[in-house]
Amino acid sequence: MAMLEVNDIHTYYGNIQALNGVSLKVEQGEIVTLIGANGAGKTTTLRTISGLLKPRQGQIVLEGNDITETPAHDIVYKRIAMVPEGRGVFARLTVAENLDLGAYSRSDRKNLAGDLERVFSLFPRLQERQKQYAGTLSGGEQQMLAMGRAIMSNPRLLLLDEPSMGLAPVLVDLIFDIIQQINKEGVTILLVEQNALMALSIANRGYVLQSGEILLSDTAESLKNNEMVQKAYLGIE
């Protein structure tokens, strides 16, 4: 049984259809990436899985349990965490408070100290800036904070929306290293990226999304070598 199964979901913004029957699977321990152009429906897919949007049709199944109707604020209790597009840090809260909110859903308070240490070892920068308001951090630091905050909920599945957006190349490398590291520690990852090359280089498998539909799905290796993908998304003529 796949860890996460998305079956034929149709999602709308008002009357505008954003997803037109998206299906995908994520297996335990994988990094799966979702690539596609702007407006293809990548973010909408993640927001639907996380409960922020409700599909009009289709199911989302987590380890055999239908979570389609589960509201966003209960999803984290199923140990799915999302790092939203644009990071979504709470600008007028301190770094420490942001991390604390990440652990809002936790009832095992005694493990929190350990998890906080884990976050600080992944992102030493956050430890230095604990008392600073999140709004005063640089873009890269905010991305670290958003990821650290998600880790604090102790997820088994992490949804990442455009973690490289707006970051300097050296920071992008760092972030992707850390994604791999988190994955090695046992967290399954569903990654949405515009930087398809980068995404495919760390992913096991990938889906190509276009106009709200899955165009292609294959292993990351094959997608990288696919001529159409190269042309459209990897900038290789």
């Binding site: 966003a72 939203p84 979504g88 007028r92 408070e97 809002y104 909920s153």
Partner: peptide, 24 residues
């Protein structure tokens, strides 16, 4: 307090707050 932190989180960004498990 925890509730206070949740209130401030909701004040700033309702969607993200709900991702934290906060019932907005």
């Amino acid at each position: 307090t925890k509730v206070g932190k949740a209130i401030r989180a909701v004040a700033q960004d309702r969607a993200t707050a709900s991702l934290m498990g906060i019932d907005v």
